[in-house]
């Protein structure tokens, strides 16, 4: 098993911490994991992305050039990374903020109104975890239990009161694609 996941969006949408949560969960399950951010000369409000690799074997390059799964939280990210996804891969599109469709026919595409769902749950900031929930349900790359455990590691103690609402977001995402 090797999943190379690229998560992309605006700076501030939590794409780096979502990737870290996923990597941490992979580690908790005893898998080989790596996480690498884009660190180009980005500007505030610009795009941010990170690559997470989770594998049964040691990871050669941590740089994700051909993702098996892509999460795009905004339109520039879809336009930039759609073509890089591996054939038969998966693209998760945050349809709350992206008003165009994917053009690829050789990949599976899921449109998830992540911000709307997150706001219905009670906090727009957890939109990324709605999509993460869908990703985990479809790929089984890590178990929901490992993610729950990892939330405690990734979130600083004063944010632990946010764990239940994050779990709700993950569950809502999983429900959508069941």
């Amino acid at each position: 098993m090797l999943e190379a996941i690229l998560i992309a969006g605006f700076g501030g949408q939590g794409v780096l911490s979502t990737g870290q949560l996923l990597a941490e969960a992979g580690m908790v399950e005893g898998k080989h994991v790596s996480w690498i951010p884009s660190y180009g000369p980005e500007m505030r409000g610009g795009t941010a992305n990170c690559g997470v690799t989770i594998s049964d074997n040691p990871i050669s390059s941590p740089v994700v050039t051909e993702p098996t799964t892509l999460i795009v939280m905004n339109r520039p990210s879809l336009e930039k990374f759609e073509k890089t996804v591996k054939k038969d891969g998966i693209i998760f599109i945050n349809s709350s903020l992206i008003d165009i469709k994917a053009t690829r026919k050789d990949v599976r595409v899921y449109y998830i109104p992540a911000n709307e769902i997150a706001e219905n749950i009670g906090n727009g900031k957890i939109a990324n975890n709605v999509i993460l929930g869908a990703l985990i349900e479809l790929t089984r790359v890590v178990t929901p239990g490992a993610v729950e455990k990892s939330l405690r590691e990734v979130l600083p103690p004063h944010r632990h009161k946010m764990i239940p609402i994050n779990l709700k977001a993950l569950e809502a995402g999983a429900e959508l694609v069941k």
Binding site: Q20, S34, W35, I36, Y39, S61, P62, V63
Partner: peptide, 10 residues
């Protein structure tokens, strides 16, 4: 190199 510096691993 930049990759080693920036990447996270267990």
């Amino acid at each position: 190199d930049g990759v080693l510096g920036q990447m996270m691993e267990p």
